[in-house]
Design a protein around this nucleic acid. Structure first.
Lengths: 236, 236
DNA sequence: CCTGCTGTTTGCGCCAGATCAAAGTGACGT
DNA sequence: ACGTCACTTTGATCTGGCGCAAACAGCAGG
């Protein structure tokens, strides 16, 4: 099936307001791409040749500093647009994207971006909203990192994951892709060691359930209280 | 002069590609607003009623955390669009904007945003770029705050100010609006005291010249070396 | 079943930088 | 000129959480 994406695409906000004909038109220049778990989708510094929509799977976008430390910029969820460097007048990708699980994306050559924005105002409006949401999230993280103590930062990081990538289960909400303590540390702006200690404390208190690359939040409400500083930390 | 803004507006990227007639049209729904130094332009949590373009002056946008700490989100420079909360589907402003010097802005009712984006693709494209730039800057700050030591963070903060709001002078580059050490601290994610110590050290080394709400960078090149960790810190 | 690899836990010492405290100084109004 | 207020400097102390180190546990592949 060369065009299984017709209906899928219509679900996504950026394309929701396009007609059947327009979608067919838009799909003409798109190619589906499959990324095995662990593979690199694009690399920091490489020429920005494509922008894409994630159909399913999960990507992790990281940046490395000039001195070699890594930070996780964001997690790309199904439905998200990613790799839009050129819209920001960049010629290279500002970060590296890696598939954390087997993933499928729909990919357009970068030159299609401008026409898409110019021709479909609803696409432009949607793009603004998507980028705007990322901006708000980034600003929240800045506020968190610069004013909050580690335990609360880790709390907010986990809650953000729950909201963006959580699936309800009997015992709580599971983050449905493999995530290491190292990843959490790079999201919260701390170290692997500190994250490990915090999660262990939370596990004893019954807030979460953790394991090798597994994370499940059993008591989101109470975790929120800790993250917001209403309930004191559980360390020590 | 009710419409002195015709030519001014045409200088600004979001409006640069509009025709004379279109600009007249766009200006019809705009009102100029004057903000005395120190006055509040809009307040965090208030209903988002307007979006604006800063014609001259300088605004400081801050956020306060639930627990009362403040962080400086960004400085609005002439030519910048600000207060576009509604474009991000927010109904209230996520931060507070204060005029640091007497400022003049052109202001539209929020309902005009969607029509503007839908009608003028070049406006939409420009908005995407502006928001995207803020996003990149926010991500840089996240990387800095979570991986760099204070001195280098303060360095990058100052360099960012130089780039965005610096004016060449005989002795170096001056930040052309009043900025306190407290402001710098809230931008770099540290405390007033630490900023003071660092700037004192830099002053002794001839990198900067500081005073009461004054900041001038005498040796931007060397400051960059310190900020990038190529040259060791000057503290102690 | 063993072996290796990668992710995780936990203990301990230490230091960057926050916090507390107090004195110093430039700008502005009267 | 003087006093006041806001901003700044500097010192002294305290501590969160980082860095280092070493042991431990899932999981994959032979």
């Amino acid at each position: 099936m060369l065009v299984p994406h017709h209906s899928v695409l219509k679900q996504l906000p950026p394309f929701a307001r396009l007609s059947e004909i327009e979608i067919t038109e838009v799909l003409r220049s798109a190619v589906p791409r499959r990324y095995p778990a662990g593979s690199v989708v694009f690399e920091q510094g490489a020429a920005a040749l494509h922008f894409s929509v994630l159909l399913n799977g999960r990507l992790r976008v990281t940046q490395v500093t000039p001195t070699g430390e890594q930070v996780v910029v964001r997690i790309v969820n199904p439905g998200d647009i990613f790799g839009i460097a050129r819209a920001l007048r960049l010629h290279t990708y500002p970060g590296t994207a890696t598939a954390v699980v087997e993933s499928l994306a729909l990919s357009w050559p970068m030159e299609q971006w401008e026409p898409l924005v110019e021709r479909y105002p609803s696409f432009a409006a949607s793009a603004i909203r998507v980028i705007g949401e990322r901006l708000l999230e980034a600003q929240s993280r800045i506020r968190e990192i610069s004013t909050e103590v580690v335990e609360r930062r880790v709390g907010h990081t986990v809650l953000r994951l729950v909201q963006q990538s959580g699936v309800r289960e009997a015992e709580g909400i599971r983050i449905d892709f493999p995530i290491s303590k190292q990843d959490l540390a790079e999201m919260a702006g701390t170290t692997l060691h500190t994250v490990s200690r915090i999660l262990t404390a939370w596990e004893h208190a019954g807030l979460v359930d953790t394991g090798r690359q597994k994370l499940m939040v059993k008591d989101p409400h109470r975790l929120l209280l800790v993250a917001d500083g209403i309930e004191p930390g559980l360390l020590g």
